[in-house]
Design a protein around this nucleic acid. Structure first.
Length: 331
DNA sequence: GAGGACTCCTATCTTACATCA
DNA sequence: ATTGATGTAAGATAGGAGTCC
């Protein structure tokens, strides 16, 4: 049960808040178990506004002043405002902490209102905040003793009534705009197939796809964006794994070559007069099993030493992904 | 060159859903 | 069988950068 009334909007600034006169009037007129509710809703001026109101209603209602538990002599500035508890209105997706704590998400309502227009004319709006220009602030009293659950239930009830009187498409859009979309399997498969063909869309393709899948163009656009981002992420993970394995292979190879160098040096020291290096030495890469010719053993040793720390100071990655994969596949 | 429209990328939030104790 | 906690995948948003006109 609610009571509509006209009242003064009192603001108290500074350190010595004065008691609001309308509080006395209210408490004399009604029983003491009252609450004060402020509502934020759309101005309904014409049929378009009325259609929008099916999305925007019920107005955001804020339970401001719990009269009964607060002693009369307590300064109103010390009242705890319930919208700071984050309970009355759910957090807005993507909002900053500051916005989230405020619990009042006008932008959300604005966007939801815009969503209706977007569906109606398939226009892609780049600035969703521009469509709804004005709100009216309404004040109402309602009897306390009702929990927030009751309040929400009554809001839902009111919303149901309003929704029933609005167009079916609005109702559907209202539901969709509040619930997260889950693509059907068919939609998903179709989008996947499209993505395989081309992972970016031009405007024409996007509109065609949206029409075919009964989605909004923006939804198709977002799906492709997310798909690209997650494909890239997975590819990065795969590449990272490849590089890790390649690095391990090189490290092992380097360790073995260092050991060979030590053995050759030891051999050279023990038999200096018989150490006549051949003009050409054939060596085999242990990973890819390719035979490599070098002009001398010393050159081979030098070449081996130069690969000792291939990732120590990389200026840039020296191999293409294809080369790395071919190398790993061969090994 | 300035500015608007548009797209893409990236980071992040939010929600639906699955899994498990 | 149910339920709450938790993790993950995916839809959605915001903001910055680049491009085109």
């Amino acid at each position: 049960m609610s009571f509509e009334c006209t009242m003064e909007l009192a603001l108290s600034l500074g350190d010595t808040p004065k008691p609001f006169t309308f509080l006395d009037k209210i408490q004399k007129r009604f029983d003491k178990d009252l609450r004060f509710c402020m509502a934020l809703g759309p101005v309904i001026r014409d049929e378009n506004d009325r259609r929008r109101s099916s999305i925007l209603d019920p107005p955001v209602q804020l339970d401001l002043l719990p009269f009964s538990p607060v002693p009369r002599n307590q300064p109103s500035s010390q009242l705890r405002f319930p919208w700071l508890t984050e309970k009355l209105i759910p957090a807005e997706p993507g909002s900053s902490d500051g916005q989230r704590r405020s619990g009042l998400y006008v932008n959300r309502l604005l966007r939801e209102a815009v969503a209706v227009e977007e569906v109606e004319d398939a226009a892609v709006l780049s600035s969703p905040n521009s469509a709804v220009s004005s709100f009216q602030m309404g004040f109402a009293l309602y009897r306390s003793g009702r929990s927030k659950r009751d309040l929400e239930a009554s809001l839902n009830e009111a919303e149901t009534e309003r929704a029933a009187s609005s167009r079916a498409s609005d109702e559907e859009e209202n539901r969709l705009s509040r619930k997260k979309l889950r693509l059907s399997k068919d939609q998903y498969v179709f989008l996947e197939e499209s993505f395989k063909e081309h992972n970016t869309l031009n405007l024409k393709q996007k509109l065609a796809l949206a029409k075919q899948l009964n989605l909004r163009p923006r939804q198709v656009e977002v799906w492709f964006q997310n798909r690209r981002a997650r494909t890239k992420l997975k590819q990065t993970e795969v590449d990272c794994e490849y590089l890790k394995r390649y690095c391990e292979t090189l490290t092992e190879e380097n360790r073995r070559l260092q050991k060979d160098i030590q053995e050759l040096r030891a051999f050279k020291t023990s038999q200096p007069f018989f150490m006549q290096p051949p003009a050409t030495t054939l060596t085999m890469c242990p990973s890819c099993q390719r035979v490599v010719s070098t002009s001398s053993t010393a050159a081979a040793a030098e070449a081996a030493a130069s690969t000792a720390m291939p990732f120590a100071k990389p200026k840039s990655y020296p191999f293409s992904q294809t080369q790395v994969r071919a190398h790993l596949a061969a090994s």
